[in-house]
Nucleic acid binder design. Structure first.
Length: 215
DNA sequence: CTCCCGATAT
DNA sequence: ATATCAGGAG
């Protein structure tokens, strides 16, 4: 079975399980999504949503953050971890958006990844969510883990993983592919304790096929 | 490569 | 106690 066939089968099974996948981060504007994704680095979406619920009542535009004292932003985002970096990046990114793009979010990958705190993963998420654009595949910690366990790749670098996945995952499925692997990663293929015994895509997974690492 | 870093599950 | 959570910058 080719990797492409495997990917298509997995997509089919996970679509039946999860339906049409959507971003788990709460937001009401492209800018709010951008901030939420910056905050989501090494932090659960559940935690990010708790923080942004309060944060966006205080500030939810580039102007708001550009004018807010850094220490105040730090306190508001503290519980997401890496809070000094994240606060600094959100403020700097807001200033960059105002200076270069009149407060709007640029569409291109190149422009997005030049913004403070915005790497390839964040840019992929924003582009896919806001405009349905995908000239890349979002590779986060879940996509990386599952791609290796399933046997799609045998590397750890997210950029290289993305390039490999793009070779055989049908382009029309790039956005859903990431969403669905992330959902399966949270639900079943948990890093600490994968529930291979009840995994719906076990038969397509190198790891789950070898042995039943259950409960 | 290292550093950033709090909350949570195990 | 320790690994892990929708990573990015220097």
């Amino acid at each position: 079975m080719t990797k492409k066939d495997k990917a298509i089968e997995i997509l089919k099974i996970l679509r039946e399980k999860f339906g049409h996948p959507k971003c788990a981060l709460d937001y009401n504007s492209p800018f709010e999504l951008l901030v939420a994704v910056i905050l989501s680095a090494q932090c659960t979406d559940v935690r990010v949503n708790i923080v942004t619920k309060t944060l966006f009542k205080v500030a939810n535009t580039p102007e708001d953050f550009a004018n807010m004292p850094l220490l105040e932003i730090e306190e508001l985002v503290r519980s997401t971890g890496f809070f000094r970096n994240k606060a600094k990046n959100i403020k700097l990114c807001s200033e960059q958006l105002l200076e270069k793009y009149n407060g709007d979010i640029p569409k291109s990958m190149e422009e997005l990844t030049k913004l403070a705190g915005v790497g390839r993963k964040t840019a992929n998420v924003v582009r896919g969510e806001i405009w349905g654009l995908a000239d890349g595949i979002t590779v986060d910690t879940h996509v990386r883990r599952l791609s290796n366990l399933i046997g799609f790749v045998n590397i750890e670098d997210p950029i290289k993983i993305e390039k490999e996945l793009m070779k055989f995952v049908p382009k029309k499925d790039w956005i859903d592919f990431s969403h669905l692997l992330i959902l399966q990663g949270r639900d079943i293929c948990i890093a600490r304790r994968p529930k291979c015994d009840i995994c719906e895509i076990k038969e397509f997974c190198n790891y789950g096929n070898k042995k039943n690492f259950n409960s």
